[in-house]
Computed example of a mutant assay.
Amino acid sequence: MHNFPAINDRPVRLGVLISGGGSTLLNFLDCIRDGSLNAEVPLVIASQADCRGVQRARDAGLECVPIVRRDFASLADFSDAVFERLKAAEVDLVTMAGYLSLLRIPDEFLGRVLNIHPSLIPAFCGKGMFGDRVHKAVVARGVKVSGCTVHFADNEYDHGPVILQRSIDLPEAVSADEVGRLVFEQEKIAYPEAIRRVASGRLKIDERRTIYS
């Protein structure tokens, strides 16, 4: 059993990884501004140079560095480049915020990388299940409840220990777009809370389980 050391004397330094519009990043910044999340964002890394989130991050005055998988000969080289930048920025936690590139997480970062998934893991998760694909699968299956999961990332898709989940009852005849909007409202609450729990030092990891006390 192990846990992340408490950070209560300064803001938590977040490295934020994005692939799209940066909505989760903007939510972090809103929470930082309103005082509900004691954090700062010294570095944003984008998996695509032209994704909308790059400009949004820069408009917010943040350093945003595109690191693109196709520019590297191997997954190992790509992952090394990402984590070397994160180490240089002295981040405490790495938050995958709609990040779609596969990474190999080095041992020193295990237990320090968080991901959010737009379903209640283990439902509707795994390789190829992300974004609208998840919400379309939810609608096609006709489930009555969906939600989001924040978990520690490891080197398997949607596999690491779950930190917290938030659920919602779905309306009848709901569309995938509406599911996405409803779930994102829960993500806006869940991800900052997960960061607070980890930074508190009170969240312990016991194999595949987390214990928060």
Rank of each mutant, 00 (worst) to 15 (best):
H2V: 12
N3H: 15
N8R: 07
P11Y: 09
R13Q: 14
L17F: 12
I18M: 06
I18S: 04
G20A: 10
G22A: 08
G22Q: 08
G22V: 13
L25M: 13
D30G: 08
I32M: 06
D34R: 13
A39F: 07
V44A: 07
A46K: 01
A49I: 10
R52Q: 13
G53L: 01
Q55L: 08
Q55D: 15
D59S: 13
A60W: 01
G61C: 04
L62M: 06
R69A: 04
F72T: 11
A73G: 14
L75V: 09
A76G: 14
F78K: 02
S79I: 06
S79Y: 04
S79P: 06
A81C: 10
F83K: 07
F83A: 03
R85V: 00
R85G: 00
K87D: 12
K87G: 08
E90W: 00
E90A: 14
E90G: 03
V91K: 09
V91I: 15
L93C: 13
L93T: 11
M96D: 05
M96F: 04
A97R: 04
G98H: 01
G98A: 05
L103R: 02
L103F: 00
R104C: 00
R104Q: 14
I105E: 02
P106Y: 04
D107W: 02
E108C: 03
E108A: 13
L110G: 01
R112K: 15
N115S: 08
N115V: 08
I116T: 14
L120I: 15
I121N: 03
A123P: 00
F124L: 10
F124Y: 15
C125T: 10
K127N: 05
K127D: 02
F130G: 01
G131V: 05
G131P: 06
R133E: 09
V134E: 04
K136T: 11
V138G: 05
A140E: 14
R141C: 15
V143F: 11
T149G: 07
V150M: 02
H151D: 07
H151V: 12
F152V: 10
A153M: 12
D154H: 01
H159I: 07
V162K: 02
I163M: 14
I163F: 10
Q165C: 07
I168M: 00
L170I: 07
L170H: 07
V174A: 02
E178T: 03
V179R: 12
G180V: 08
G180L: 10
G180S: 15
L182H: 05
F184P: 01
E185N: 09
E185V: 00
Q186M: 13
A190Q: 03
A194V: 02
V198N: 15
A199K: 10
K204R: 14
K204N: 11
T210E: 04
I211E: 11
